[in-house]
Amino acid sequence: NITNLCPFDEVFNATRFASVYAWNRKRISNCVADYSVLYNLAPFFTFKCYGVSPTKLNDLCFTNVYADSFVIRGDEVRQIAPGQTGNIADYNYKLPDDFTGCVIAWNSNKLDSKVSGNYNYLYRLFRKSNLKPFERDISTEIYQAGNKPCNGVAGFNCYFPLRSYSFRPTYGVGHQPYRVVVLSFELLHAPATVCGPKKST
């Protein structure tokens, strides 16, 4: 009989979030998941669920729940959905087409922007091929755009693959930082360890 609440607040209220290319994953298990708490945590810009209804979450049980978190800019949030393409979905964080879970995003301009520009958040701009779903690539190998090998040196047709967002508070919403948490629900042929409040007794 599990009584402890799932530590969603640790994920959502973390002081620092990860850069999207090096997104963070927390496995959540053996706890009571009260998803209604999430609705009250922040004024969400996005709370979209796929393959599951957000209002039914509190009635369900899962084997595992994974919470992935990272920062992107406002106009990239739409890429965090099944079947999307674009720089983020292709080279940084890719959801599977049959994704079961929820994408939660909110504006973090007050936390993640600086007047002089916050350069701490990076994204991958160049990659030889698209990522597979939930693949994480943290390599910093020089990207070869031409025929000549780069031998690890940046220059003509040889690019450092990561680029930094420079978040400034005066930017338009599309270029402001957004914190994203992706909850993916895993149903294996194994005992369910993460249940809503109704199912945990």
Rank of each mutant, 00 (worst) to 15 (best):
N147D: 08
N120S: 14
T3S: 07
F156K: 03
P191A: 10
L187M: 03
R27A: 06
L183I: 12
K199Y: 00
N13G: 11
T46I: 02
L188N: 08
L5Q: 01
E10M: 14
L111I: 04
T193Y: 14
K26L: 05
K128L: 13
N30G: 03
S116G: 04
L125P: 01
N157R: 12
N118D: 15
G83Q: 10
S53P: 08
F62Q: 13
E141A: 13
F47A: 06
T63G: 02
V153L: 09
L122S: 03
T15Q: 06
A42Y: 09
Q144D: 14
K48D: 13
G196Q: 00
K114G: 15
V194R: 12
L41Q: 03
T46M: 00
D9K: 03
A42R: 07
N58S: 08
T15R: 07
F156H: 11
G117D: 15
I142P: 13
A33G: 13
V173G: 12
P197T: 09
T201G: 13
S53C: 11
L188R: 01
A192L: 07
I2V: 02
D75Q: 14
A33Q: 14
T201R: 03
P149N: 03
Y35I: 08
F44N: 10
V173H: 00
P191N: 08
T100I: 08
L5D: 07
V11L: 10
T46A: 11
Y119L: 11
K56L: 07
R16W: 12
A190N: 13
S129R: 06
K148S: 04
Y91H: 14
T15K: 01
V37E: 09
L60T: 01
A192R: 04
P149A: 02
F62H: 11
S139R: 12
D9Y: 02
S29K: 04
F126C: 07
F126T: 13
Y143F: 10
L122W: 03
K198M: 01
N1G: 06
F45W: 01
V37L: 08
K110D: 07
L122F: 01
L188I: 05
Y123S: 14
L5H: 06
N151L: 05
F47Y: 04
R16G: 09
T55H: 00
T46S: 04
P197R: 02
P7H: 12
S184T: 02
K56Q: 09
D97A: 10
F45E: 03
F62C: 08
F160D: 10
F126K: 11
S184Q: 12
Y119I: 15
V153W: 11
P149C: 14
K128R: 10
I2C: 04
T15P: 06
T201W: 10
L187P: 09
D98T: 05
V194C: 01
V37K: 13
A67I: 08
K199N: 04
Y119D: 02
Y178M: 13
S200Y: 07
N151I: 14
S53L: 12
A190E: 13
K110L: 05
G83C: 12
S129D: 02
L38F: 06
G152K: 12
R78P: 04
K56E: 09
N130A: 12
S139K: 14
T85E: 12
I28M: 06
S29P: 14
R78M: 09
V173K: 00
K132Y: 12
K198T: 02
T85V: 01
F62A: 09
N64M: 04
R27Y: 09
S116P: 15
G83A: 12
L188G: 10
S129T: 02
L187A: 12
K132Q: 04
Y178A: 11
S166K: 12
R78V: 06
K128D: 05
A154L: 00
H175F: 03
V180C: 14
I2P: 07
T193S: 07
Y123H: 04
N87D: 10
V65M: 09
A190G: 13
S113G: 15
A145C: 10
Q144R: 12
L5R: 06
S200R: 04
G152T: 11
D59A: 13
T193I: 07
V52M: 10
V37I: 08
S200W: 05
R163H: 07
T85S: 00
Y35L: 02
K199Q: 08
V115S: 15
